[in-house]
Write a protein that binds this DNA or RNA. Structure first.
Lengths: 337, 337
DNA sequence: GAAATTAATGTAAACTCTTACAGTGAAGAG
DNA sequence: CTCTTCACTGTAAGAGTTTACATTAATTTC
């Protein structure tokens, strides 16, 4: 592969001149610049990322840590949506994204932080289920510019989907349709789950509705088996709820199947709602009532904040940015009397 | 950041010795090795990727080019599934993956190949809609190790979902249920589409079933609006089909909505099937009949083949690997008489 | 006990790039 | 005619690592 040296030899100028010519420095004559450019093209010159990074200590690389229960979060619609928009945004600004290796099967793997330092990423974005993991904490507490999604760390930038308001809005909507016996299958303990529970109770409290404890049950996210089982239990209660809220759109499918299997109609007999706004689910009749999380905005804001933190660390405000979701009414919440 | 030099100073040995000690060379005494290791840990030493890459000309980096119509293919369930499994597999072997920048909005962006050469990726995996794009061709024809997914290039490794057999199987299944008037809304021209069309006609031909031309219509992939419209047209024909096959599971939703809107029942009046096996869709009642593409296997095979090509270029067989899908019967194809 | 072997360590170059600084020659100033 | 300025180009260091080869000391061989 052609290097600056090859070009310099061919052009009869020094390596420094070539470098400056290609990087548009002003102290190079137009003539030289054009000649260098031409030869560079002829030789099929490609700059060498590693050499440049070594010298400048900048990689224009961003590390991505998206981990869900199973693997890398790529098949997780919400994460995928966020990542997709994050990616487009940073790429526009000339950054590349590399996944932080989170394989557990490697013989002597690096920790997340080690991996980040090794690659010299300019910054890191993190979205995952388990923010409590020591390795994640180690990374967040390091001096690498970092933005987290849906979880707040002390003194770090976080982009948050507004789960409190979202869940309040969804619950309010159910109440406005006449529901008082609302069950909530929520996810396992996490920042997100806590926020949504807060929103849920905020709505019911305000309307003076008391939700029996047995209506509020933890299940896993995106686990149709879990919601199926728990839904069955709810339906068999003497004091059956009229409305069931699920951790997410996907897990709602498990619940809906249980409801139908028990011979109930949706929404005439039992109303349901999900959370996320996954098109593959909400585009099907009867359209699932849900809160659409603004993955586009979340990814974009995360990207812009991170780049700002990288490029202007002094003036970037460390804050939690909250991105509202929006209620998609759908057709799975019935009006009751 | 601590470097080899810092360790060498601290230990009173040469930089070379430190390097060898850390890299497990055999010509270093155990005592020295342990001492170096210890000091390295104390100083929080992290190897420098760029320096290493510069010297060795190896990055253990793999470039990923996943482009769909809209963006990066991350929100495309099939691609996401393939990528997820690809990622896990290469990460196990110590490779990292970076997206090849495909932003069109960048001022003076590099071509795909330039970007790959710049980063010095050891290999590249490509899955995209538009394999005809000159930039893609340039990349594929270069001397970078490459594996393509669902598209065959001369003399290059390709991993193919078995679309011919899959579509044959699906069509056969419909025929076995008594359907003769089968419409097929297929995707826009592409390797995948062609293969599936081949499979479709192979099945109908074998059974001596003639499909009217107006039953076979091009729509886009993952476009519910398109399938909605075309389904409407089909339903309004005097000679209405009894069964409609869709380009993919997601676009089938548009068709199903049209069918219901016209007052037909699924599958009693009109049978439908999709393609892909997207759980968010197939896990809902009535379960959509589809072909599940083995994304796990496709990603894994692509990864293994690519790594083999990188590490043992001489002995790696250049071939097209075909991965079969599997029929998921579901409940949207009815038996008719 | 000299020669040969082995084990451990060191030397130095190279990979490619950027950049602070130095140098050159020409033009302009006085 | 000297001095300064300007426009351009060159020199050289250094970023952190790997590795072929050289060196040294200790051990074995006959």
């Amino acid at each position: 592969m052609a290097s600056l040296k090859d070009i310099s030899r061919q052009c009869g100028v020094s390596v420094a001149t070539v470098s400056k010519a290609l990087n548009n420095h002003t102290d190079i004559s137009e003539e030289t610049r054009d000649r260098v450019r031409k030869v560079a093209k002829e030789l099929g010159y490609s700059p060498n990322f590693s050499a440049r990074a070594l010298k400048t200590n900048r990689t224009h690389g961003i590390g991505v840590l998206f981990v869900d229960e199973a693997r890398s979060g790529l098949t997780h619609d919400y994460f995928a949506g966020v990542l997709d928009s994050f990616k487009s945004t940073v790429e526009e600004k000339g950054y590349d994204i590399t996944f932080i290796n989170c394989s557990t099967k490697q013989p002597n793997r690096m920790t997340f932080l080690e991996h980040v330092k090794y690659h010299g990423f300019d910054g890191v974005v993190i979205a995952c289920i388990d923010f409590e993991a020591p390795e994640v904490a180690e990374l967040v507490q390091s001096d690498v510019p970092v933005v987290t999604i849906d979880h707040v760390f002390n003194n770090k930038i976080a982009i948050m989907s507004d789960n409190i308001t979202g869940m309040t809005e969804l619950t309010d909507y159910c109440i406005s349709k006449g529901h008082k016996k609302i069950a909530y299958l929520h996810g396992e303990p996490s920042t997100v789950t806590t926020a949504r529970l807060t929103g849920f109770y905020r709505a019911t409290d305000k309307k003076g509705i008391t939700i029996p404890d047995e209506y509020v049950v933890a299940t896993k996210y995106r686990d149709t088996v879990g919601t199926y089982k728990e839904t069955m239990k709810l339906l068999k209660m003497k004091n059956r709820p009229t409305c069931i809220l699920y951790p997410d759109d996907f897990s709602a499918l498990g619940g809906m199947n249980a409801i139908r299997e028990m011979g109930f109609r949706i929404p005439e007999d039992i109303s349901v709602a999900g959370y996320d706004g996954i098109k593959a689910i909400t585009d099907r009749e009867p359209q699932l009532t849900t809160i659409i999380q603004a993955t586009d905005q979340i990814g974009e804001r995360a990207a812009k904040k991170l780049i700002s933190l990288i490029e202007k660390p002094k003036t970037t405000i460390i804050e939690q940015v909250v991105i509202p979701g929006s209620l998609q009414e759908g057709k799975t919440i019935a009006r009751i009397v």
